[in-house]
Nucleic acid binder design. Sequence first.
DNA 1: CTACCGATATTCT
DNA 2: GAATATCGGTAGA
Length: 193
Amino acid sequence: MDTLTVETHARRLLGAMLTHGDVTVRITEVEAYGGTDDPASHAFRGPTPRSAIMFGPPEVLYVYLSYGMHYCANVVVGREGDASAVLLRAGEVVREVDVARSRRGQVPDVRLARGPANLTQALGLALAHNGSSLTGPEVVLRRPDVLAEAISAGPRVGVSQAADVPWRFWLTGDPTVSAYRRSPRAAAPEPLG
DNA sequence: CTACCGATATTCT
DNA sequence: GAATATCGGTAGA
């Protein structure tokens, strides 16, 4: 059975290759969302039509509509019922870059999959992929056997609840990682003691 | 580079 | 009615 924490699952997604159709993205930045115990999680108040997939089996996509406009993709992790998930925040397009460019428009290549909605758009994922298996045939996730790069950790982007929990992870120094933006409604940062 | 702003579906008060 | 796991445009340092 799965006894790994959601943070460990998040770290293990760094360097992973996510393929949809022809496009492959190497994941460089993620955020952990810890199910019903995490006030920043969509699962915190129990299942809703939007978050129902989080409460099911792991190793599927959780795709949701953000701010009424953008799609964001997560990997459901942990045991069935945990409702834990890892938001895919940024990556490097490593295959069929021209297809990703056609979806994203006129931006530098390092920005093709920078930001969760941009990564999802570069891969061509949408609400139809909510609940899709990560073992194919349409969507495939391959985790690395070993990770060469160092991992950094810090607070999650844009969340106003549990704003100081360091559950954002990224490959140290990677040029595709997004900039940190704290929620304007978050409480004042907790000073280092 | 940073800061602000508006678009707008789902969810909660 | 208000908040939200965002983004691209515009303005300014």
